[in-house]
């Protein structure tokens, strides 16, 4: 698999699955470290190399049907690294880290394993829509297979030991990406923030820690990883947290339809107007407007544009995708021009 082969289309998992109108994706991440090695902040480069070799070998040799590829992130071009961040294959932390590090990508991008990120190993399974339980099932199986090949740092009291104590115990981070334009438009998004805080959840933007919410996309994830079982955390998302937020968003959409249909129409059709006619557009503006379009199609206010098309545009208009598909690095102005051109071509 070459990165260029991926850049012309969205990831397989993107845009389908249960409750996909509101739930973009479900992701489960496990943090693991190898016994017998220091954590990365005090590790020598030789140790990092040894860890990377050990884990790469283990990941490529476990008995799963999916085709797997390893990418060395420390030797990758800056553009390739940004591209992998845009596709949620690696984190910004791994992209901008130092020393020997890499990623194994498998299952048409549904499974990734980051080596030498904040912990020695960060496993991730991502699926479209609300599929947290399926993600947990897959990742736990992979984790079991790896455990036969390597020895994890584990203590009976604190569980899986991680570099930062905020991840210790299960090392699990469940994240669900939500599209909540109606809660935002009806001014109820603060309520959502308050509710998530009461439930010990973190809210982040599209690209994880330290990123702002763009285009009404919010990522919620658990903060407590110790003292609860993985199943309890996963079930909480599936049975309580996500259905409740989906219900709030649907209620807000109905409220808009009943009371402010023209405000809604105006937002959607202005977005379409700009996307169809602009000659220069930033990725941030494009994301915001595509978000309104997505809401318009899902609320049946807009015909002639499909959700798969909007999903495709979400990715194709990202800076690294634009440049990789063009085959060269582009400055910001040229990117804005090219982005507008692609949007005009696809939407007219």
């Amino acid at each position: 698999m070459r990165l260029n082969d991926l850049s012309s289309h969205p990831s397989q998992w993107f845009g389908s699955g249960p409750s996909a109108e509101i739930v973009i994706s479900s992701r489960v991440r496990l943090a693991r470290n190898l016994a017998g090695f220091k954590f990365l902040s005090t590790c020598s480069n030789e140790d990092k190399l040894a860890i990377s070799d050990l884990l790469r070998e283990a990941l490529l040799s476990i008995d799963v049907p999916q085709e797997r590829s390893y990418y060395s992130v420390d030797t990758a071009a800056a553009l390739d690294r940004d591209f992998m961040v845009e596709r949620h294959l690696i984190s910004r932390h791994l992209a901008h880290g130092s020393g020997p590090r890499g990623v194994v990508i498998a299952g048409q991008e549904a499974f990734t394993a980051m080596i030498n990120e904040e912990d020695h190993l960060r496993l991730q399974v991502i699926k479209g829509g609300l599929q947290v339980q399926q993600c947990w099932h897959d990742i736990s199986m992979i984790d079991d297979m790896l455990e036969e090949k390597v020895e994890y740092a584990f203590s009976p009291k604190y569980g899986y030991l991680t570099a930062c104590p905020t991840n210790v115990g299960t090392g699990i981070r469940v994240s669900v990406m939500l599209h909540l334009p109606a809660l935002k438009m009806t001014g109820q998004i603060e309520k959502f923030f308050n509710a998530t805080r009461d439930m010990d959840l973190a809210v982040r933007g599209l690209f994880g820690e330290g990123t702002e919410a763009i285009g009404d996309f919010y990522q919620i994830s658990n903060q407590v990883t110790l003292g609860l079982s993985e199943i309890a955390i996963v079930n909480d998302f599936t049975d309580t947290i996500v259905p409740k937020i989906v219900e709030y968003e649907l209620a807000a959409r109905n409220q808009l339809l009943a009371k402010e249909a023209n405000v809604l129409n105006d937002k959607i059709y202005r977005a379409l107007g700009i996307l169809k006619s602009a000659y220069m557009i930033s990725s941030q503006e494009a994301l915001g407007l595509l978000s309104h379009l997505r809401m318009g199609v899902n609320m049946k206010r807009l015909e002639g544009v499909s959700i798969p098309k909007i999903n495709e545009l979400f990715l194709l208009t990202q800076p690294a995708h634009l440049q990789l598909n063009e085959g060269r690095a582009l400055d910001a102005t040229t990117r804005d021009e090219l982005r507008a051109k692609i949007l005009r071509q696809h939407l007219n």
Partner: peptide, 24 residues
């Protein structure tokens, strides 16, 4: 620090590696 980060919890009760001692 651990208790504050994990809503008062201080002991693991999730998955245990197959290789871990039975006692754990």
């Amino acid at each position: 620090v651990i208790k504050k980060s994990h809503a008062g919890h201080d002991t693991h009760c999730g998955k245990v590696p197959a290789k871990a001692p039975d006692e754990a």
